Simulated scan of single mutants.
Amino acid sequence: MNHDLTPRPLNPAPQAPLITWPNGAKSAVFIGFDVDAETAWIGNNPSNVDRMVTTSHGGYDARVGIAKILELMDELALKATFFTPGWTALAHRNACERILRAGHEIGHHGYLHKMPDRDRLDETFEEVDRGFEALQQALGVRPVGYRAPSGENFPELLAYLAKSGIRYSSSFRDDIRPYRHACSNGSPGPVEIPVNFAFDDWNFGMSSRSSPRPLFGHNAVLSLWIDEFEATHAWGGVTTLVLHPQVSGRPMRWHVLRDFLRHVQAKGDVWIATGQEISDHFEKVERQLIAQ
């Protein structure tokens, strides 16, 4: 493939509109979990399927992590969005059914957590289709939200997601407010609920023999999250969390997340919502702006 390096904005989406949050809230918080399970370790490196200690990182999700995260959400009376690869839903159906029974949103996160690749469009689209099919088969749901496995996207995939009924994405890192994607053919794409990389727990709490890096303790992570949230709150944006049960479902990191969410709740003027709720609100605001 020839790559077009012409100077231009590489994301053609229009600027995010100024948005008023519901119930007089000054900002929003989107609690999103990526229920990768073993797919985090085998999707982009299939040879790991025969490395049981390596994949046991992901096995923690169904054995411990999902249940502990659901306990936390119940304790704080919060609803979250669980972006779930189709493979995870089929392999760990009982654990994923508990997410659904607790009233949380299920989002699309590919089938085997393969990174989308513009040079392999057929494979990328198959990942989307198989993800839908597996979530329907295992859980009886067809998600409206999508988080890109390994956090990658490109124009053809955005258009395919929109065509497939995806109403919102939560992968891009280029704003603090939701905005509407623009497809290359001129049609509107999904709503984007952008991510702040500082709120990806994998950066601070996951290390392995194959990817060794430092781990960060309670005070380091909590102070970073609080400072970043407070600044985003002051700017009226959305704080989007990219969490993983195999990280934040671990004992100490569970307490980091609980302490952070308690801090957010104590503010009193924050709207904590699922991805679908935020997308619904954005679309309502969008219709009002168009009508003016």
Score class of each variant (00 low, 15 high):
R130D: 06
G58Q: 03
Q136K: 13
A37Y: 02
N44C: 07
N185Q: 07
P17S: 10
A148M: 05
G237F: 14
S207M: 02
F172Y: 14
G58L: 03
R258A: 09
S223H: 11
L121G: 02
T124C: 13
M252W: 13
R51Y: 15
N44D: 15
Q288Y: 10
P194A: 09
L10C: 02
D117F: 03
K267H: 13
A77C: 05
P214I: 00
L18Q: 11
A148I: 01
R51W: 14
G24D: 04
P22F: 10
N153Y: 15
F154M: 03
P46G: 06
R209D: 13
A40D: 08
Q292I: 02
S207G: 11
G189I: 01
S184L: 08
Y146C: 01
T232M: 14
E127P: 03
W41C: 05
W271H: 06
R253V: 01
H113V: 01
G268L: 04
R101P: 01
S27Y: 10
P46R: 05
I278N: 12
L243S: 09
H244L: 07
V141C: 12
F197V: 03
R8L: 07
N219W: 07
T6N: 11
V141T: 07
L90W: 03
R258M: 06
P212K: 03
M1A: 07
V247R: 07
Y168V: 00
F125T: 00
V195T: 11
F172K: 02
A95I: 02
Y111V: 01
T84F: 14
A13Q: 04
G107A: 06
M73R: 06
P188E: 07
N23E: 11
S27N: 10
I278H: 12
S169N: 14
R8H: 07
G165E: 06
A231C: 04
S56A: 14
P14M: 10
N153Q: 06
R262A: 09
F260S: 08
S27R: 02
I42K: 01
G59F: 04
P212N: 04
D61G: 14
A220G: 00
F33D: 05
I31R: 15
G107W: 13
D61L: 11
F282G: 06
R250P: 13
G145F: 01
N45C: 08
D259S: 14
D34C: 08
P190W: 14
F204K: 01
A182S: 09
S208Y: 08
R262V: 14
H108V: 00
K284C: 08
N48R: 08
L161E: 09
G165P: 12
M115A: 09
F154D: 02
R258Y: 11
L158C: 05
F132K: 03
P9G: 00
A13V: 00
W235Y: 08
V128E: 09
A40P: 02
L241Q: 10
K26T: 05
V64P: 03
A134L: 08
T81L: 14
G43C: 09
E105I: 00
F125P: 00
A77T: 06
L112I: 01
P22E: 03
G24N: 05
E38W: 08
V221D: 12
F83S: 09
W21G: 08
L261Q: 05
G65L: 02
I31P: 03
F125Y: 14
